[in-house]
Amino acid sequence: MSQTAVTPKRTDHIHHHFVDGEQQFDASKMGMWIFLATETLMFGGLFAAYIIYRAWYPELYLEASQELDAFWGTVNTVVLIGSSLTVAMAIRSAQLNQLKGIVYNLYITIGLALTFMVIKYFEYAHKIEKGIRPGQYYTYQGLEHEKANVFFSIYYMMTGLHGIHIIIGIGLMIWLLVKAKRKVFHSDYYTPIEVVGLYWHLVDIIWIFLFPLLYLID
């Protein structure tokens, strides 16, 4: 294995206002990180609401959290960790010029993301059927606490906004898949996979906090 194929660096993806591919890559990535900072603050507002209401009504959280199924919460955590792994593997495939690897890993990621949403759908449907709805639409009689609807407003807002992020993520993965199949990506240009990957990992991190805070209060 001593022979090394010297392929000229491709430059067709570099826009004229960048010095080189490196600078273009760094600029995109920094832009994504600044967007992720705003995402952190958007979810942060909801986490703040969660903390303030938990300080006011600690017994409400203990009681209402029993209505959430920790088993399916755990399954969804495992599903999202798996999808984070496959996104990281898709980036690795791109870095190594393994075009098929990108496509396979994106397919698995989309499959896992859809699995997450299907489980979430059954969780929501089950609750809505029982009358566990947000705010004034709350009609469930099974919980004693008079502020039970507040917990579920927070639950629906946090998991709902997170779910919207998963759906947007699925759209972005499909877009990457189309590009990957057109052989747009190679080891010198995989910026879109990298930045969508960053987005996807942040969505995973948010779920990592949502899961114990909503499902595992005992």
Binding site: D26, K29, L36, A37, T40, L41, F47, I51
Partner: peptide, 24 residues
Amino acid sequence: DSKFNLLVLLTAFAFLALLILITM
């Protein structure tokens, strides 16, 4: 990675901590 990207994320956390602490 470049430490600047870490700084961006940590800054977001710092402002989130301010939001929560001052409100509380």
